[in-house]
Write a protein that binds this DNA or RNA. Sequence first.
DNA 1: TATGAATGAGCCTTCATTCAT
DNA 2: TATGAATGAAGGCTCATTCAT
Lengths: 196, 196, 196, 196
Amino acid sequence: MPKVTSAHKAEVRDRIVQAAIESFSQTGYDKTKMDDISRRLGLSKGTLYLYFKSKEDLFLGVCEMSLKAGDKHDAHLFTKKENAASDAEEIFDNIRRRERGNDRVMLEMVVESTRNPRLKKAMYEYHLKVHEHVLEGLKKKVEEGFIRKDVDVAGIAIALVALYDGLAVNRMLGLNDSVNKKAWVAMLKAVIAGSS
Amino acid sequence: MPKVTSAHKAEVRDRIVQAAIESFSQTGYDKTKMDDISRRLGLSKGTLYLYFKSKEDLFLGVCEMSLKAGDKHDAHLFTKKENAASDAEEIFDNIRRRERGNDRVMLEMVVESTRNPRLKKAMYEYHLKVHEHVLEGLKKKVEEGFIRKDVDVAGIAIALVALYDGLAVNRMLGLNDSVNKKAWVAMLKAVIAGSS
Amino acid sequence: MPKVTSAHKAEVRDRIVQAAIESFSQTGYDKTKMDDISRRLGLSKGTLYLYFKSKEDLFLGVCEMSLKAGDKHDAHLFTKKENAASDAEEIFDNIRRRERGNDRVMLEMVVESTRNPRLKKAMYEYHLKVHEHVLEGLKKKVEEGFIRKDVDVAGIAIALVALYDGLAVNRMLGLNDSVNKKAWVAMLKAVIAGSS
Amino acid sequence: MPKVTSAHKAEVRDRIVQAAIESFSQTGYDKTKMDDISRRLGLSKGTLYLYFKSKEDLFLGVCEMSLKAGDKHDAHLFTKKENAASDAEEIFDNIRRRERGNDRVMLEMVVESTRNPRLKKAMYEYHLKVHEHVLEGLKKKVEEGFIRKDVDVAGIAIALVALYDGLAVNRMLGLNDSVNKKAWVAMLKAVIAGSS
DNA sequence: TATGAATGAGCCTTCATTCAT
DNA sequence: TATGAATGAAGGCTCATTCAT
């Protein structure tokens, strides 16, 4: 829905979304004023409306961008049981690196999605994609003989994603992230031990 | 202050909090109007201010109440490996029964807590209590010999709570809860298998 | 659409409409700020919204009130040809007295009505009522033998109303009202002479 | 300033005014955006400001142009009483043809003129010119012996113009124009009958 | 001369909060 | 204690106007 369409104008749009992410992360969607975002950018309020027709539309832009962000991979890990702990840590760090700063917005998005069907659908689908991505990784491990065939990998995949989300909640509550990582590692080790 | 009046006051206060929980769950904190809450109660807006000095104060009341709610126990479960699956399901259902309807408010509370230190502290401490509660349960299982001694039960405890929270997020996104339960069961079975 | 319903609250509503009429008359609909109206009343802006859900709604309230205002009668006049001039003057003054101050709003209403079907309908029907009212008066004159039977009284009725409206336009343009009255009298005299 | 450029400028200026007339007619002065006008022309918003220094200035340009438009004549009519009706109709059609589409803007101009002295003066003078024009026509009829000498032709002239204006209001309200024409004819016939 | 992205003052509307009854 | 009309600060959004290209 960009009103302004030309070469580098997509870049401005991106900058706006970035600023919005920062603002929404710090203040939350409702408490963030359009003015805050524009001032953060050194732009005028009116300019935002050249790129997004409303505050909600901008939020949707943020969602879109956030949902696009997660796509990298952590294959090649978990090939030896002995490395389980360090492998788990690496994955945790990888995900966190990707998400850095987005936790808050993500939660907002989840909350908001209960009211906004369009957003809910987008998030739902993104979640499915993540589940699939993880599931694929697990399946490879099954093929490699690293995980037993009779394990419900689909269930495990969903659970792993949920586990990470839940730890993100912990982080927001101020739980030291090293504790979260420990929890993640402990769980993963147990899972691997129990599944292989 | 006579006891009777006091009792009445406490009761009205509770009713207000209940109504607030419902409203916040449906519309979210920011989008809920004091008017909505009072109308839901059949009370006048002004009355709310006799019991809570501000909307935020009311929200804190909601938090307080929500945090008080979770305390029951699921000991006696997980005594035989063979029952792992059904035991896991029972736990899932128990928790869900306790939390029913509160998911949304909980998330809001987490989000809000990043801005409100008082709330953050309360939620943090509640989380710790829950962790301890779960940890205690796990420790009993260690004593019973059901879980190996070299397992990081503290980590597992935190992870289990996080897992549940993450599944609550899934639920909010519209993921069918039977899928969530499956994920929960799959994970718990693996954990038990790997830890015992 | 009054949100506030009680005894004297209708009076407040009326006062608001009155203030709105004055403001709209002086500044025009678009250029009038809700603030102007509330300040004129010594009320707060917010209060207006307890009685009217939007600026447009308030304008509709003004229309409604304005349309209700015109209902009096000038029968008993025009019974003798000799009095035609003074009778005409009396009618002119009567109408002007009723409309005093509303010319401007009326014009605004007409202009606005081209965009607002609801308003257009209301004004159209009001006009018809006025036409009928005048027509009835004329018919009586026909019965009394004051006007010839072969005159198109329906056409004359409409024309008389239009004539008055057109003179109101003159008035707005600054044409001295005594000139308008003269025109009115000249026309009416000619009409009577030609119709009787 | 070379003549050629000047000619081009004048033409563009005219096109802008035309577009403005159309826009103002459809949406009204206040609700019309400079953007609407420029888009209607296929010009950029900025260009408008090369020709008119403000929206109000453009409106004044529209007024100027509208006021220039009315100048044609209907002499030669009303020479025989028997033709009164058809003559009246012809006049009605002639005027309407000249004004076609301008009714709305005219009304806007009247309304606006109550706030804008410059505009008010222009419209006032234009009205006087029209009055004079009609008066002249009527005087000729007096000379021709078609109208009696003791009739207040000045008053009748003004009244005729007002009558037409009033019927234009009717038209805006959705009154079928054939009804308006009938009213016009009825009135004119009566006037002629009464004045000759 | 022409453009159209950027500006920012301004206005409608909402809603938490107060207070007279 | 309970009410609900009144308040007014605050924020989303619009649009006339400017200016660098």
